[in-house]
Design a protein around this nucleic acid. Sequence first.
DNA 1: CGCGCACTTGACTGATTAGTCAAGATGCTA
DNA 2: TAGCATCTTGACTAATCAGTCAAGTGCGCG
Lengths: 217, 217
Amino acid sequence: MASRAGKITDGQPGISTRERLLRSAISLIWRHGYNAVSVDAICADAGAHKGSFYHAYPSKAAILSKAIDRIWERDRAELAAIAEGPGTALQRLERHMDWFLENQQRLLSEQGYVPGHFHLAIDIQVPDAARIAAANRDEHHKLLQSAIRASLLEEGADDAFADFLTMAIERIISGVMIEARLGNSLAPLQDLTALAMKLRQLALSAKSDPSFAARPF
Amino acid sequence: MASRAGKITDGQPGISTRERLLRSAISLIWRHGYNAVSVDAICADAGAHKGSFYHAYPSKAAILSKAIDRIWERDRAELAAIAEGPGTALQRLERHMDWFLENQQRLLSEQGYVPGHFHLAIDIQVPDAARIAAANRDEHHKLLQSAIRASLLEEGADDAFADFLTMAIERIISGVMIEARLGNSLAPLQDLTALAMKLRQLALSAKSDPSFAARPF
DNA sequence: CGCGCACTTGACTGATTAGTCAAGATGCTA
DNA sequence: TAGCATCTTGACTAATCAGTCAAGTGCGCG
C-alpha cells in the first residue's frame, strides 16, 4: 500500500503492535479456543500483519504462553491484594470467593460474554501452555489454601481439616466455571461465596459432632 | 492399490466402516479435542478412505453429533440400570456416585488415559453438538437429581433441599472431571462418592440444627 | 448368468493453515 | 544529515484442511 506506511497502524494509537496482538490473542482464544483461532485472525483483529506477528512472537504457541502469563499476572495481583488486605481471615476468605464473580463480571463487560477460566479454552492442546497453566493453577491453589487455613485457625481446626475443605471448594469453583462458560451466564457464580461459606460452617459444626471423626470428608 | 481391493479393509473384520469411523472419531476427539482432529486422521485411524467417510457421514460435525449420542447411550443405560436396580435409595445414590470412577477406570483401560467428560473435548465449538451435549447433560442431571431426592425423602427433606444438594454435588463432579482429565489421573475421582455422601450427611445434620434455616446452602 | 445397488477407492479442488523472507519505512543517535 | 537498529509490509511456501466425485469393486438377488 503506497497511501499509508510506517509504524502507525490500524489499531489504537499508543499501544504497541506486540501488545495489540497479545490482547487480540487473549480475547479470541478465550472465546473460541486455541485451535479454533488462526494467526491470521489474530493479526486481523489486532490490525497487524503476519510479519509483525512473527517479529513479536516466535510462534502461535508462544503467544498462548504469554497470554496465560498475562491473565494470571492480573489475577494474582488482585488475589494477593485481597490476601494482604484488611479484615479478619474470614472476611479475606469471603472476598477471595467474591472475586470469582467480580472477575467474570468484568470479563463479561469487557468481552461481552462469560468466558470462565482461561484454561478451559486451552485444555491439553499445547504441552508448554498446559505446563504454565498448571503452575498458575497451583499458585492459585496455594493462595486459596492459605486463606482457608487462616480462616479455620481461629476455630481450632488443623491444616489437614482445612485442606479437605479447600479441595471441595476448589472443585466446586471448577464446576461453577464450566457451567458459567457453557451457559454464558453469571448465575452459577452468584451463590458461590455463600455456598463456600456454608460448606465451611457445615464442616465446622460437624467437627464438634462426635459422630464425625476428625476428618469430616 | 492392485494387491487388495473391495470391501474388506484394514480395520477389524466384522465391523462396518461406518462403525470403525465412529469409534476412531470418539477416541481421537476425546483425547485431542474436536478442532485438533482432522477427517484425514479419523480415516487413517479407522483404516478407511475419505470417500467412505463422506459416504457414511455428511460432515465432520455430523460424526461429532453421532459420537456424543453414542457415548451418552452407554452412560444412560448404565445409570438407568443403577436407578432401577436393587437396594435402598441411598445405596442406589452411592452406586451412581461410584459409577463416575468406574466409568473413567474403564475408559483408562480402553484408551490408555483418563479422558474426563466427553464434552470437555468439545466445549462450545460446534453449535449443534453443544445443543446435543447440553440435552444429555440435562438428562443426566435429572437422573442424579431424582436419585438424591429419593435418598432424602426418607429423611424427611423436601425437594428444594435436595435440589441444592444436587447442584453442589454436580459442580463437584464437574470439577473432579476437569482435574482428572488435566492431570490424567483417577485420584480426584477416588474420593468422590465419600465426599458426596459426607456432604449429604453434613447438610442433613445441619438441617436439624436450628441455627441453619430450611435452606442450608 | 447378469443386473443393480451399496460401498470403496484415491485423486482432486479451493480454502486455510503456520511460518518465512526480502524489501522497505521509521525513528533514534551521532 | 547520515547511519543503523527496529519495526512493518505483503507476497510467498509447503502442508494441511474439509469436502467432492467419477470410476471402480463386489455382493445379493433375480
